[in-house]
Design a binder for these strands. Structure first.
Length: 587
RNA sequence: GCGCCCGUAGCUCAAUUGGAUAGAGCGUCUGACUACGGAUCAGGAGGUUGCGUGUUCGAGUCGCGCCGGGCGCGCCA
């Protein structure tokens, strides 16, 4: 059990002995490190509950704790805080246990669940751009966190390939290049090479989208094309496959550059076979009804303080919309993937959409009672001007360009610092890329998921302070020490009770890892991991500044410090891995 | 108009979900290298947490009312 878990149990028992709830014993790191190492706040809540002075309760709990052999000091302070300080021997014992554990003291879940993480949300005809960054980075970190916790994680980007945007593209191409065989009902064979490139699609799509807004005839044509595609027109399907193919190819490359991999590469179209039966069933059961010529599911509830529009299953023109595919996807994830929890990592603007989907899924009986659906929303990524991040010309910034900019910046910074100078070119390029990606991911994940934040390339590229590269550097330096120690024939030894403040602080920090990671998972908040990794690196740097390991003459002490360094490195690398950040061997 | 989110140091952001004296990074000022990688470390200055008002032992956090900003509100995704 983790140190904090252990302390909570001891304090909880003390509360229980007084006839109070053992939950009150929850122990957390002290907010006043100069007073104590840990604190218990339950006496105040208990005082309110049973109508007794909190300090009195706190004192009774403290009296019971003071006899424990691990506790060196316990005091009651303020309105009823219970401050606890451990013996150095106890710290060393817990440290030894956590350092030797492959999960660093974290307790893997006893009840593994299947967790589907739906994130990134690439679409046909759209190269990955900065708008996809947060979803991808946050989703990937959450997937890593749940996986670390022992759950079965299924990562699915949920490719947008079956809605109205496909009709728009087909209609636009039919207009622009009517001679293509896909539009000829008598054509038997279709080319194997795509007639369009991703660049073509990226030009055509915004044009078509804009035209549909002002040109009703064109919009109708696009809607008809959507329906024809969904009904299986062979020419349309062949063209669709080409468009999907070139989009996916480019997107897989972008994800690869980010170090993001998916377990499935499903799209809206993969649930196509479910759409008609699902819709027919809902119509029959009365869950769905006609409204304004469309088929909808009403999801408004009496307690709503605003109007929640109905979910539209089938448009007036008979086409299925993304609501329809989303609902069918929920069904698929329940029936085929046996999901217990579905996390939709999608930006906040779609909050209403997910309310509709989740309610409709419940109403339609598509999800079992204990299956949870969550919209993990996040804020907007803005440019330094505080407005959504755009190029100087006002266009969207391609993901590949962002990565490129950061890699160039990383490379320049490496050169300035005369780092990696003598390494082979290939390794130096790899390091620059790793550093650039770390800057990008950490710069995003350090922020609270729900706040908007400013993406400032210059700031991220400065590689100083609270940044991914700072953490990589800290880890690389530990590796360097361990290499030197090994070369000198110094072996790690058992962890001894700390004798230096910075050493004790580092151990206590490392012992917090289980709770921090657990909290990050509970709150779906990777920023807790990012913040902790930064604090940990700082604690190590302070330790390393005060304790000179390699010149330490006492063998036992030196061995203990080497073990502490090894432990810190494992923790740092693990935490960074949970953020999707890699650490080079040297830099 | 209705609803959701936000407003914290000069700037960018945190804050263990109601706990003690609101913390970091950047910037700024002062220090520390004949030691393990100075992308480092030690320290200073910098705050009426938008404003007001409640709730209670305790409020950045919860309620109410204002002010300011972002976003969403039926057949796009």
């Amino acid at each position: 059990m983790s140190l904090l878990g252990h302390l909570s149990q001891i304090a909880g028992q003390a509360f229980a002995d007084l006839g109070l709830s053992s939950d009150l014993g929850e122990t957390v790191p002290s907010q006043r490190p100069e007073l104590a190492q840990f604190q218990v706040n339950g006496a105040m809540a208990a005082g309110k509950a049973v109508g007794r002075p909190p300090r009195e309760i706190a004192q009774e709990v403290a009296d019971r704790l003071s006899g424990h052999p691990d506790v060196s000091r316990v005091e009651v302070a303020g309105p009823g805080f219970i401050n606890i300080t451990l013996t150095d021997e106890a710290i060393a014992r817990f440290a030894t246990e956590a350092a030797g554990d492959q999960y660093l003291g974290f307790e893997v879940t006893a009840r593994p669940e299947t967790v589907v993480v739906d994130y990134a949300g690439p679409n046909v005809a759209k190269a990955m751009h900065v708008g996809h960054l947060r979803a991808t980075i946050i989703g990937d970190s959450l997937a890593r966190l749940f996986s670390f916790a022992g759950h079965k994680v299924i990562r699915d980007p949920h490719f947008g390939d079956w809605g109205f945007q496909m009709g728009l593209l087909i209609a636009a191409l039919a207009d622009e290049q009517p001679d293509l065989p896909y539009f000829d009902p008598d054509a038997g064979e279709y080319p194997t090479e795509s007639p369009v490139t991703l660049d073509d699609l990226q030009r055509v799509y915004p044009e078509a989208s804009a035209r549909a807004r002002s040109d009703d005839d064109f919009a109708d044509a696009a809607r008809m094309a959507t329906v024809r595609l969904q009904q299986g027109d062979p020419g349309y399907l062949a063209l669709w496959a080409h468009m999907k193919g070139v989009s996916e190819q480019s997107q897989r490359k972008d994800f690869g550059a980010l170090g993001v991999n998916f377990d499935l590469w499903y799209g809206e179209s993969d649930v196509h076979d479910r759409l008609a039966p699902l819709v027919a069933g809902l119509r029959e059961s009365g869950v769905a009804e006609e409204s304004h010529g469309a088929l909808v599911i009403r999801v408004a509830e009496e307690t709503d303080n605003r109007e929640i529009p109905p979910l539209i299953l089938e448009s007036r023109s008979g086409g299925f919309l993304y609501s329809t595919t989303d609902l069918a996807t929920v069904q698929m994830r329940v029936e085929e993937l046996h999901a217990d929890l579905m996390l939709y990592v999608v930006d906040r603007r779609q909050a209403d959409h997910f309310v509709q989907i989740f309610r409709a899924a419940r109403r339609a009986g598509i999800v079992p009672e204990d299956t949870r659906l969550e919209h993990i929303w996040f804020g907007t990524m803005n440019g330094p001007d505080g407005k959504p991040f755009k190029t100087r010309e006002g266009g969207v910034v391609r993901l590949a360009d962002v990565i490129d900019m950061l890699t160039v910046a990383a490379r320049r910074r490496l050169d300035e610092a005369h780092l990696a100078e003598e390494y082979p070119d290939e390794e130096r390029d790899q390091i620059a890329e790793m550093v650039g990606i770390a800057a990008l991911k950490f710069g995003d994940l350090i922020n609270n998921r729900t706040s908007d934040y400013v993406f400032d390339l210059d700031r991220f590229s400065s590689f100083e302070g609270k940044t991914g590269p700072y953490l990589q550097y800290a880890a690389v330096r530990i590796k360097s020490i361990l290499r030197r120690a090994s070369a000198a024939g110094f072996a790690p030894g058992s962890l001894l009770p700390p004798t230096v403040d910075t050493e004790r602080d580092l151990m206590l920090e490392l012992l917090r890892l289980p709770e921090v990671v657990g909290r990050a998972i509970d709150l779906r908040a990777p920023n807790h991991v990012a913040e902790f990794a930064f604090d940990l690196a700082g604690k190590f740097n302070r330790f390393y500044d005060t304790c000179h390991i390699l010149s330490e003459p006492d063998e036992g002490r030196r061995g203990s410090w080497l073990s502490l360094s090894t432990w810190a490195l494992s923790a740092l690398e693990r935490l960074l891995d949970l953020l999707g950040i890699e650490v080079p061997d040297r830099m």
